[in-house]
Design a protein around this nucleic acid. Structure first.
Lengths: 334, 334
DNA sequence: GTGAAAGCGCTAACAA
DNA sequence: TTGTTAGCGCTTTCAC
């Protein structure tokens, strides 16, 4: 990489002249600017990002810490963050906490050394279970703003972007009630998470309001054979005529399991699941899905953070943005 | 963030003394080291990464450019890269090219300003179609090494990590021949990609060797209704008794479509697809999969790059690592 | 209109 | 054993 110094030497001018010329300073003569820019173009000069960061004490880089990159929703949020950040000239450093509190702490600590200007993160499962928030508070007190999305720690004062989890399942369940379903089950792999609990509560509320069977909840653990669990669950509870799935895999598996058991979907049993469009193609009939608008969530999170970074003096109040889900009817419901 | 300067002032010693003490220099007295470390601990001192990068002319950061973060395979490779890089103290800046040549160029250009020490990337579809490689060569000539994985540009001199695509489908097809399948189809969404073509060739070779019907190839485009295409294909070609899918979605959809058409899997029709373990749970029976060992691919790529970064003088020959796939038999084949 | 110099935070060669 | 100084690449204030 060519530096200002080298350009200056070759042009027989000072470093500062070159710097000013490249920045179109009024101070510099037209002819000089022309000469400088020509040579800079020739050598494909680009200001060294690191030097700039040191000088300006900001890196134009955002640290993103996500629990699991293989989770389609989280990957899509990451995509949304990257897209939005790029618009404003920000780069993304990605760390994966693997749902581990220690890894989350490490990532936060490692990047809080001037590597990034702020963080966007979704809280690791272990962190939520243990309800630890000190590492977040510490980071913020060091002057590094955090924006949390989806799985948030409510007791941390920071901007947040969340989904209306409770309402989503409440409404989805009610839509099944309208189909005259009497035994609507709830399947989740997210029992340890705040969002999982909210989704369960939304479902339960609708069930109670309509005096339906409240004992049709299946909680699947990471280690379980997901497919076998759901198959057995449907076998043992032959009355089930509707399934609300708190995650995409459970919805897909539920449909395929039902078909495997000789049930007609949606005639005998309806299924709704949190999932993306591409997931919905994984079943036949296609899955009716609760869309979380992951990309938009990422974009909002990026906007909130960048906004805060660029108004550091303003110190605005913290904001919580709720991104409403959309129920996209497909062929797994009536 | 507290700096050496502040610590030095408070301790009434020079900046370099503090620096040396923190680095356990032999030059510094034990007592001084103790005092310095105590205060540093108290203030939670961390050396400023940006200053270090500037000083040492390396960032310990790797630029990763992937075409699509929603692709499970690519996301898993990213995971592998991140894990391996973290072991060596490297961070990952992620850019998503969205299969676009311009975005790929942009990312390369933007990060080649001192932001990263090198790149790991998988070539965008548009880049492969247009067969552009100048931007890669230029980056390498600027002293930034590149490691390519999966979709590589063979004419670029750089380290590569690839999958034995040809052999995978050749062997998978032969395994179906052993099942006495007579009309084995090939379904792909990857027609524009080098890996897609290799997979098709491997399939074709096996088909020709056994004098089987070579006209059972279905190419699905991004915009097509994936499910409808495959359903129609199976309807029109009732003789099909085996499917090799070049991507995970096609495999999943093929199984569900076959079941929907009243076929028994694997009795009437076998299906094999490139997919990960979690994908294989999306069908019932579970999909027999060609595993690409995405995480290992990522880890190798990271190793190759870091190795090159740390032996810059050595200038070793370029390497191409082939990661062999594994055929994991499940219940969608006999 | 151009240049010298300071400084961002750090390391390291050299001086004391 | 400790301190001084230079320098990484850049911007910017202040002289000239």
């Amino acid at each position: 990489m060519v530096t200002l110094k080298q350009l200056a030497k070759e042009l027989n001018v000072s470093i500062s002249t070159v710097s000013k010329a490249l920045n179109n300073s009024e101070e510099i003569g037209e002819e000089t600017i022309r000469r400088v820019k020509e040579l800079a173009g020739l050598y494909n000069y680009k200001p060294n990002k690191v030097a700039l960061s040191l000088k300006q004490n900001k890196t134009k880089t955002i640290g993103v810490i996500i629990p699991d990159i293989l989770n389609h929703f989280l990957a899509k949020v990451l995509f949304g963050i990257e897209r939005e950040a790029a618009k404003y000239g920000y780069n993304i450093i990605t760390c994966i906490s693997n749902e581990s509190l220690d890894q989350e702490k490490d990532s936060l600590r490692l990047l809080a050394n001037g590597s990034v200007d702020g963080f966007i993160l979704s809280v690791a499962e272990e962190t939520q279970v243990k309800n630890e928030i000190e590492h977040f508070k510490k980071t913020i007190s060091q002057g590094l703003p955090i924006v949390m999305f989806d799985r948030v720690a409510h007791d941390v004062m920071c901007d947040k972007v969340i989904v209306d989890d409770f309402d989503s399942t409440y409404n989805a369940t009610k839509s099944m009630v309208l189909e005259k379903r009497k035994n609507i089950a709830f399947i989740t792999t997210l029992d340890g998470l705040s969002v999982g609990k909210l989704r369960e509560r939304g479902y339960k509320k609708a069930i109670l309001e309509h005096n339906l069977n409240p004992n049709l909840i299946l909680k699947v653990k990471k280690k379980d054979d997901h497919q076998k669990k759901i198959l057995n669950f449907l076998k043992k509870n032959k009355t089930i005529d509707g399934v609300i799935a708190a995650d995409s895999s459970s919805g897909i598996i539920a449909i395929n399991a039902a078909i495997n058991l000789g049930l007609k979907v949606p005639k005998d049993i309806s299924v709704i699941g949190f999932a993306s469009k591409s997931d919905s193609y994984h079943t036949l009939p296609k899955l009716t899905t609760i869309r979380q608008h992951a990309k938009e969530i990422g974009a909002y999170a990026a906007q909130l953070l960048i906004n805060r970074l660029q108004n550091k003096d303003a110190e605005e109040d913290i904001k919580t943005k709720i991104v409403k889900t959309t129920l996209i009817k497909s062929n797994s419901t009536l």
